[in-house]
Computed example of a mutant assay.
Amino acid sequence: MTDTQDSQRSNRRTVVACAGVVVGMTGLAYASVPLYDLFCKVTGFNGTPIQRADNGSDVIDRTVAVRFDANVVPGLNWSFASEVPEVKVKLGETTTVLYKVTNNGSKATTGIATYNVQPDLAGPYFSKLECFCFTEQTLQPGETLQSAVVFYVDPRLVEDGDIKDISSITLSYTYFPSKGGKPVEETSSTSTATTPIVQ
């Protein structure tokens, strides 16, 4: 009788432990995407520019070309472009570039822009002060919206042995259809989003 009770108690503990592991793993699965996104934004990992409140850097006499890549996925009838394809900036210098997006369709549509920086290793040094990314935009037919990105390239880039000699950085934006404040990556069963990067 005692052996049976001990065995049942041990089985219950095992079941409770397994259930706890399942609940914990499920919680981690749901938290992993926002935690990874936060990690990228804070560290610049995977080419994610860092969001900053202000520019406390000194301007140094070293220039780098910043190229602007603007894309719209198939299925979102918008045109999207930067005012200039490229600017040359001094490291530490605050720069503003305007983008224009137009709804070419016959009905109101909603989109949201995502972004990255190439090469990936430049992400920690590309700091955005103002950006339209991850802000849902609804445009009426024929409506045009102008938005700014304000950024600087951190002078500490020259101390990074892996990329101190780079001559250009590409900032790439892609507009996706938006649903509930999130980008919809596939707009149909046959069309998927692609983001061409210019090196």
Rank of each mutant, 00 (worst) to 15 (best):
T2A: 11
D3C: 12
T4Y: 06
T4C: 09
Q5H: 08
S7W: 14
S7G: 15
Q8I: 13
R9I: 08
S10E: 14
S10H: 13
R13K: 11
T14C: 04
G20P: 14
V22P: 14
V23W: 01
G24Y: 04
T26A: 15
G27R: 00
L28I: 04
S32F: 01
Y36N: 14
C40R: 05
C40H: 05
T43R: 05
F45M: 12
G47Q: 13
G47A: 12
T48Q: 10
P49T: 07
P49Y: 00
P49F: 10
R52M: 15
A53P: 03
A53M: 08
A53D: 12
N55A: 03
G56K: 11
S57P: 01
D58R: 15
I60T: 06
T63D: 02
T63Q: 15
V66I: 05
V66A: 09
R67C: 02
F68T: 02
D69P: 04
D69N: 12
D69K: 00
N71W: 01
N71D: 02
V72S: 00
V73I: 08
V73W: 00
V73P: 02
P74H: 09
P74T: 01
P74Q: 03
G75Q: 08
G75R: 06
A81H: 06
A81P: 06
S82T: 05
E83L: 05
P85D: 11
V87F: 13
V87W: 09
G92E: 07
G92K: 08
E93R: 11
T95I: 07
T96V: 12
V97W: 01
K100E: 07
K100L: 06
K100P: 00
K100C: 05
T102Y: 02
T109E: 15
I112M: 13
I112A: 05
A113W: 13
D120F: 06
A122V: 10
A122T: 14
S127D: 08
K128L: 14
L129F: 00
L129N: 00
E130T: 07
C131L: 05
C133M: 07
F134G: 00
E136D: 04
E136R: 03
T138S: 15
P141W: 08
L145G: 11
V149E: 10
V149G: 06
F151Y: 15
D154E: 07
P155G: 00
R156V: 04
R156T: 12
R156P: 05
R156A: 10
L157E: 12
G161N: 13
I163Y: 10
D165A: 13
D165G: 00
I166F: 00
S167F: 02
I169V: 01
T170G: 06
L171Q: 05
L171R: 00
S172H: 02
Y173C: 12
T174Q: 14
Y175R: 07
S178C: 10
S178Q: 15
K179I: 07
G180Q: 12
G180W: 07
K182W: 15
V184M: 08
T187C: 01
S189T: 08
T192H: 10
A193I: 01
A193C: 02
T194G: 06
T194V: 04
P196G: 11
I197C: 06
V198S: 13
Q199K: 14
